[in-house]
Design a protein around this nucleic acid. Sequence first.
DNA 1: TTGTATTATATGTATCAACATTATATTCGC
DNA 2: GCGAATATAATGTTGATACATATAATACAA
Lengths: 154, 154
Amino acid sequence: MRIEDEIKQETFRSPLHRLLVNLMFTNNWLCDSQMRLLKPYDVTLPQYNVLRILRGQHPKPVKINDITERMLDKMSNASRLVDKLVGKKLVLRNECPSDRRAVDVVITEKGLALLKQIDVAQEGWERQFDGYTEPNADQLNALIDDFRSRATDD
Amino acid sequence: MRIEDEIKQETFRSPLHRLLVNLMFTNNWLCDSQMRLLKPYDVTLPQYNVLRILRGQHPKPVKINDITERMLDKMSNASRLVDKLVGKKLVLRNECPSDRRAVDVVITEKGLALLKQIDVAQEGWERQFDGYTEPNADQLNALIDDFRSRATDD
DNA sequence: TTGTATTATATGTATCAACATTATATTCGC
DNA sequence: GCGAATATAATGTTGATACATATAATACAA
């Protein structure tokens, strides 16, 4: 469906403006879809992202700080997200022996098992893009990278 | 900067996966930038979006329901967003005469004046994309639309 | 070594989103 | 007209983010 119809707005000030709205709308659409996928597993999208970061390093522990750096939405909330995951026994939090300020976070077996379940659902979800070929994705990736690189500030 | 560097992850499972991350990252980048722009004016991005919807219909009133439909992030929170804007005297809320369930929301002169100020800042912000031509934007728009249209569910 | 700056994390506050529920008004079938 | 279904908005709860601040440990400089 066209963006114009999706948000009931018939015109945009400029192609750039339409592009900005299009990017935001598409992102929301993706996030909603992911959220619905995760709902049955009782983890939120940010929590899921933290779990995946931890799995990527497993069995090595990851510090709160490193989690923050790897998160898409930067922020300073990895601490509280880890709290929630500890509550669900999906991760363990240990004081780092070499630096008592730092906290080592490790995904538990329960966490790994949950991710394994979700992997299956994810594969199903991604299958909806089976008709979307790699060259398509590569081209769109390149154009998005190019767009971002045009911005002069930050 | 490449996505790989931005989130310190060197590889992706697939071009599709890289694309998903790229879309989310780019969206966050845009939202952050907009937030910083709005900060001096003491309105949040969702509040700003509501104000623009109201300006688009001014001087006609807009019902809470219509605001919800036009928001990018759907939800049911337009009511509370309008609350905040009423508190700042940027909008007025009146019971709709023809339907006592509904609420007519109108942007105030103060609200219009604020948007006018922000417009100037927005134009400055968009100028960072001056090197990004219309054909570029049109092409990227088309590819994003195409990507979204490949999804089979929803 | 001692004092200061820096780093790592936690916490408090305000805002927003998702979801469910409630309150009230309107509409529609009979 | 009357009662049930529907529509509109408000509200309560939980989870998340942005931002500021606090707390504690480490690093560093004199």
